[in-house]
Write a protein that binds this DNA or RNA. Structure first.
Lengths: 241, 241
DNA sequence: GCAAAAGTGTTTTTACTACACCCATGC
DNA sequence: GCATGGGTGTAGTAAAAACACTTTTGC
């Protein structure tokens, strides 16, 4: 049984045949954060029965690249962004998850800064759009299942590793950071307590700058520095929220 | 490129050809706990260049079963035990991880109660043995990498879900439970504080029984009941250690 | 002055830690 | 009696939660 190797990517069958692995794909949950809402990047299905329906961006794995490299390549093709946080979720492989044959997919999730970075959805043949996490429609195949798993993983990770910053602009206020945590974890937090808890970690770098053009007292801007985090980690610090 | 579909399992090539998926395998980290030590089940490699070396048990995925089912089947074939805790880790897919061709493997880890359950290592062609986690030798392919990942996952999970019980006899003492946590997490704990913290959760079922034939005061026996946990969870309880 | 968010101070409650100490059992 | 692990009590410390309050800025 040979499966036509196009379903999301716009590359041609001929270019793919033989150069990629059989029966294994990658699907990627790309998270963004804008105006207080967590969002995910969806693409419209190009061909086949499910044409017009939305799904997660995905593609095939080349024979000479690792699965991490494949995920990174696909992500870069779709969004044009580099240096994003990318991590594997796990493999999804129910026998009937893909109608045209037995295909196992390896799920990934990525966190991207949306500041300025307009996604270049036009790179592939498919249309792409950001969708608020609470408004995600029914997706093709088992993509809702993959998305839910990605959300759980994000909720779990964000409390144990300082990865939330990957969704914020490089300079951000403490309130933005708190709202990000509130949105991801689905909880309400106390502003004063959040400030103290985060500042006590000495993890944030004071940018000696303030917000501009806001109709209230301007907040200090901070940034996250991975070197600072590494230094603290070596001193025995463990991030936990 | 066709890869001979035998490397750990003793099944014949002929029986496998066509019935299983290409280029995707499963490898399973099976944890046990005995005499205060965490152990892992290793099998001796049957054929090929690496003959005689040790590795993780693994096998192929049939075209009509899910990957979870495949892992469960392989686990049952090797150990004979059922109703074990089994969870996927992730996919491992460096291009050169498997010398005879491009094969992606999906890692699983299992927790088994060793009480009485002698493993039936003879079921497959390979020899099998339990190995203390601190004495694991160099393994074939990337199996040490998979094992390390499994250990990290176990350490992470055991603090957030009550899964440690799957490694203990169905009736156990609080000290046994504490030693299990000490061994898995690699820390020393305070006995009185451990007792209180665990008992306060109201998660353990008092078996109204005591140890016998011990040369010290006999300890109460407890058991873990999944229904009790579910009930507590519904009431808003979240396990955390 | 008012609204809106920034930022500080303080009190209360809760959880964690580190011990000291008594209990039961086999040898 | 003593070694071994079972089990309880308690004081001190640190963290988390709740909430009142002051500050800055644009309109």
């Amino acid at each position: 049984m040979t499966i036509k190797k196009t379903f999301i990517s716009g590359e041609t069958d001929e270019a793919l045949e033989g150069s990629v692995m059989d029966s294994i794909t990658i699907d990627c949950v790309i998270f963004g954060f804008e105006e207080g809402s967590l969002e995910v990047l969806l693409v419209r299905h190009g061909r086949g029965i499910r044409e017009g329906e939305w799904g997660l961006p995905g593609g095939w794995i080349r024979r000479d690249e690792s699965i991490d490299e494949a995920a990174y390549r696909l992500l870069n093709d779709l969004t044009g962004v580099k240096n994003v946080y990318l991590e594997q979720l796990k493999a999804f492989g129910d026998p009937d998850r893909f109608p045209a044959g037995r295909v196992i997919t390896i799920g990934y999730y990525a966190l991207v800064k949306k500041e300025g970075n307009r996604i270049k959805a036009g790179f592939t043949a498919s249309e792409a759009r950001w969708c608020k996490i609470k408004e995600v429609p029914g997706l093709i195949y088992d993509h809702n299942k993959i998305l839910n798993y990605a959300l759980e993983q994000l909720q779990s990770r964000v409390r144990k590793e300082p990865i939330g910053f990957n969704l914020l602009p490089s300079k951000f206020t403490l309130l933005q950071l708190m709202q990000l945590y509130e949105e991801i974890l689905g909880v309400q937090m106390d502003k004063p307590n959040f400030r103290r808890k985060f500042l006590k970690m000495k993890l944030l770098v004071d940018q000696k700058e303030k917000q501009k053009d806001v109709s209230h007292r301007a907040a200090k801007l901070y940034s996250f520095d991975d070197d600072v985090y590494k230094r603290l980690t070596q001193q025995g610090f463990t991030f936990e929220f």
